[in-house]
């Protein structure tokens, strides 16, 4: 009789959402306050100790900044050239800046067997259920529930998680599934003909409702080619160390949601002049596209109207 209690919860899952949100609204601020208070005290102590080395570090950082400025100038030249060539070829700008929101991680799932994080950003900041969450090393997970100020993130290693993947080397498609182990995922539907090998990097395949294309998922290990069957078996080591996440980035809009950027004729003209023989088709593509009048004012640079 007692064991049937949770069944009622399952069947009433749609009705009890408000209760979940109310409980999160009650507990999350306390969790946030604890993390901020203890973290602040620890940081203050750590900062005081680090002052001893500040001068030496300052000099080193200044040198590093100068070096990186030089590299940045070089990179901006390459980016401008790349933009001109892409405009000519009328390629959708896959590297259009994502609209990202930094979010501090304030808690983990209450049970040690859960695979979730709680972040201090919510619907008031533009976070929506289903939004992708990433870190500098790769993808982290998706938003599963959100209140005004807080949201829960389901990690890609959760047993119910699956991410469409693309091999960076072979371009073969597959699916990365969570296993419940923080350090491993399973690779499904990778074709035998793809010739995946240990160490191959997997990136997100993109698509509506999924992660933006090209983000790191992890590296393939333990590739097992069976005697028969269409698919091979393999494991994936995630790029992100989920136990070390203190801050993540929520993707508020991705390039797949953005129209290709309008081509700037000023950028196209010099590049077209450099080409030996522009074909009539290329000239036609070089025409600037009209910009929609209702383009969002806050949209990222180079982005068209969002749907």
């Amino acid at each position: 009789m007692f064991l049937t209690l949770p069944l009622f919860v399952y069947f009433l899952r749609d009705q009890k959402r408000w209760l979940d949100r109310a409980l999160i609204a009650f507990t999350a601020p306390i969790e946030h306050a604890i993390v901020v208070a203890v973290g602040g005290a620890t940081d203050a102590w750590g900062n005081y100790l680090w002052l001893v080395h500040t001068r030496a570090q300052d000099l080193e950082l200044r040198r590093e900044m100068l070096r990186q400025r030089a590299e940045l100038q070089l990179a901006s030249e390459i980016t401008a050239e790349n933009a001109r060539l892409r405009g000519l070829l009328e390629l959708a700008d896959k590297s259009a800046p994502l609209k990202l929101l930094a979010a501090p991680v304030i808690a983990v799932g209450a049970s040690p067997h859960s695979h979730t994080l709680r972040i201090a950003r919510g619907t008031a900041d533009g976070v929506q259920v289903g939004a992708a969450v990433i870190a500098p090393e790769g993808i982290v997970g998706t938003i599963t529930q959100a209140t005004a100020g807080y949201a829960d993130v389901q990690l890609i290693v959760a047993p119910q998680a699956a991410v469409p993947a693309l091999s960076a080397r072979t371009r073969g498609r597959s699916t990365v599934r969570g296993t419940g182990d923080l350090a491993r995922c399973h690779l499904d539907y990778a074709l035998r003909t793809d010739e995946l090998a240990d160490g191959d990097l997997l990136v997100t395949a993109g698509g509506a409702g999924f992660f933006p294309k090209g983000l790191h998922i992890g590296h393939v290990v333990d590739v097992q080619k069976r005697a028969t069957g269409m698919f091979i078996g393999a494991e994936v080591i995630p790029s992100v160390d989920f136990s070390r996440l203190d801050e993540v980035l929520v993707v508020l809009s991705s390039p797949s949601e953005l129209a290709p950027p309008p081509v700037d004729p000023a950028l196209v003209a010099p590049a077209a002049a450099d080409l030996p023989k522009p074909s009539p088709r290329a000239s036609q593509h070089a025409e600037p596209r009209p910009t929609a009048p209702d383009a969002a004012p806050g949209a990222p640079a180079g982005a068209g109207p969002t749907p």
Binding site: P6, A110, S111, S114, T116, D152, A158, Q160
Partner: peptide, 22 residues
């Protein structure tokens, strides 16, 4: 309370807790 932040079908951790109790 564990179910609340687990991002699993609701009731799994409640079931486990009651099972452990029993």
């Amino acid at each position: 309370l564990s179910d609340l932040s687990a991002a699993t079908p609701p009731g799994i951790y409640a079931f486990l807790a009651v099972l452990t109790f029993v």
